[in-house]
Design a protein around this nucleic acid. Structure first.
Length: 493
RNA sequence: GGGGAUGUACGCUAACCUGGUAGACUACCAGCUUUGGGAGCUGGUCGUCCGAGUUCAAAUCUCGGCAUCCCCA
């Protein structure tokens, strides 16, 4: 493994200098570790696999991101709740498919001090079982439905594969899981649509490009009827699941006896959905948009949106400091998250520091600016500098934020379209998909045998499928034209 | 689950093979000085993963534990 903290790269001159020099497509793990380190997102030194300490800056970014999701959920009548972290084995094991899927990767509490517990306690790997055993008491009649809940909790999964901060962890931090309860299967289906809309809006806000696919029937979430996955790609070409929107049908309702009384007085099982996101999303934002200076954060979730760097000269500090404070006060009042870096470091060092953290806009103020009543504004994404009259700073910053968003969105789309490829036949895949990076789609008739055959043929695992825009595709396996969808393949995280 | 590698200061690394004063860089602290892209000078703080064994003497050799990383299933 390369040095974790190599010597500074040789400078090419001015703002083209970088903090480190790692090709994130070729050597993603090293790039990602360095980016996290220089941005002070999480501290990876805690001696437990897959469990990291969140540092102030990283945690603020995470909270800002999660706040957006809360606003989206609240706007659609989801209510926040909290359920316990420990689950008695008797409750955990009620839904057999769920038990099969999750018992192997759960941490289990067996002792209290030295004394063995009479019943094993599971630490939630996700909260279906905990919540449903209680919500059973909360739902009496059709008038209680739909019930849409969410909670923000840490969940624990004993990952055996390699872990990576945020992207794959054993302690998932601030897992935001929504669980909904409905009278009919039709209602549950439309809730799935709402879930997809909420998540689409969320990922659009974060400038994360994605693909929504339906998971293959033999590959659904443990205990689910069907689910949709939001998939993106990280720079090394591996697919990554951003989120899953899951229709649980009545499987859990039957296991946990979740019934409601209908208008006629009958008792019916409720229909359920669930969907969740986690810290992983932040990791993906960093991975897709970061560069060799560090992070590039969308202004929406940047803990510091604007940093003010004073340029002092001996004996002339006061007017500069005064103006910096004025600008700080003015911008803060306008609602921006602003930092005035008045530390004793040199300007250059400050530039590197705040660029590493992905601060969208930097304002430099020196004696020249004070005299002219101007400030220099620098964009993190492009490095473009502009001298702006102080009176026009607000306007200029708002415009810069818009442009940064636009740039990130376009970069994201370009990035993604180069990594999601569409083919008609396996022959074409073998000829053209030589680097085997990203995800690829092939036409598929819907038959399990055909999917397995294609998977084996091109030696890349299936991800999920989605309808084609047009018509006329032939299944790449059997050649049938009826009911053909695009089946996606890719190596995933 | 199977295999391999590694553990020295916040970080990176030297000394380990061949046992004998733990050293450099970075970071951090103090002072001076400087500031439009990682300045400099002086001084200072901090370290051999844990346990056992061998030895006059262990960072170094042996055994065990713990942790991390990598590869394979």
């Amino acid at each position: 493994m390369a040095d974790k903290k190599p010597k500074r790269e040789e400078s090419k001159g001015d703002s083209s200098k970088v903090t480190f020099n790692i090709d994130k497509a070729k050597n993603f793990p090293d790039w990602y570790d360095r980016a996290i380190e220089v941005a002070q997102m999480v501290d990876t030194r805690y001696p437990l696999k897959g469990m990291n300490a969140w540092m102030p800056y990283g945690f603020k970014a995470l909270k800002l991101m999660m706040r957006q999701m809360e606003m989206l959920l609240d706007a659609k009548d989801h209510h926040e709740v909290y359920f316990p972290m420990l689950v008695p084995e008797s409750i955990f094991g009620k839904e057999s498919e769920f038990l099969k899927g999750f018992s192997g990767e759960s941490f289990v509490v067996t002792h209290a001090g030295k004394n063995p517990l009479t019943e094993k306690l599971y630490i939630r790997p996700t909260s279906e079982t905990v919540m449903y055993s209680m919500v059973r008491e909360w739902i009496r009649s059709f008038a209680d439905l739909p019930l849409k809940l969410y909670q923000t909790v840490n969940v624990f999964r004993y990952e055996t594969r390699m872990t990576r901060p945020m992207l794959r962890v054993r302690e998932v931090v601030k897992f935001k899981e929504a669980h909904t309860f409905h009278a009919t299967s039709k209602d549950a289906d439309s809730q799935i649509k709402e879930g997809i809309e909420i998540y689409s809006e969320f990922f659009d806000m974060l400038m994360i490009p994605y693909l929504v696919v339906k998971t293959l029937p033999w590959d659904t979430f443990a205990g689910a009827e069907y689910n949709f996955d939001f998939m993106s790609v990280i720079p090394d070409g591996k697919g990554i699941e951003l989120a899953s929107v899951i229709n649980l049908g009545t499987k859990f309702a039957k296991a946990y006896d979740l019934k409601y009384e209908t208008e006629k007085g009958d008792h019916e099982y409720v229909h359920q959905t669930c969907y969740g996101i986690s810290e992983r999303e932040l990791g993906v934002v960093m991975a897709i948009h970061g560069d060799n200076k560090g992070l590039i954060l969308p202004p929406l979730i940047a803990p510091i949106q604007i940093v003010i760097v004073p340029i002092y000269f001996a004996g002339r500090e006061d007017p500069v400091r005064k103006m910096c404070n004025e600008v700080l006060g003015k911008l803060t009042k306008l609602g921006f998250r602003v930092e005035f870096d008045d530390s004793g470091k040199t300007p250059g060092e400050k530039y590197y520091k705040w660029e590493a953290r992905g601060v969208p806009v930097r304002i430099e103020i020196g004696p020249r600016d004070v005299e002219a009543g101007k400030a220099v504004s620098v964009r993190r994404d492009t490095g473009a500098k502009a001298s702006v009259p102080v009176a026009e700073l607000e306007k200029s910053i708002r415009l810069a934020f818009e442009e940064i968003n636009k740039t990130l969105k376009e970069n994201g789309q370009r990035y993604f379209s180069a990594r999601v490829l569409h083919f008609a036949t396996t022959k074409e895949v073998k000829e053209k998909y030589t680097e085997r990076l990203g995800m690829l789609g092939l036409p598929w008739c819907g038959d399990q045998g055909c999917a397995k055959k294609l998977e084996k043929d091109i030696d890349i695992p299936t991800i999920g499928f989605k309808p084609y825009e047009g018509k006329g595709q032939k299944c790449a396996s059997c050649g049938k034209t009826a009911g053909v969808t695009e089946l996606f393949f890719g190596r995933t995280y």
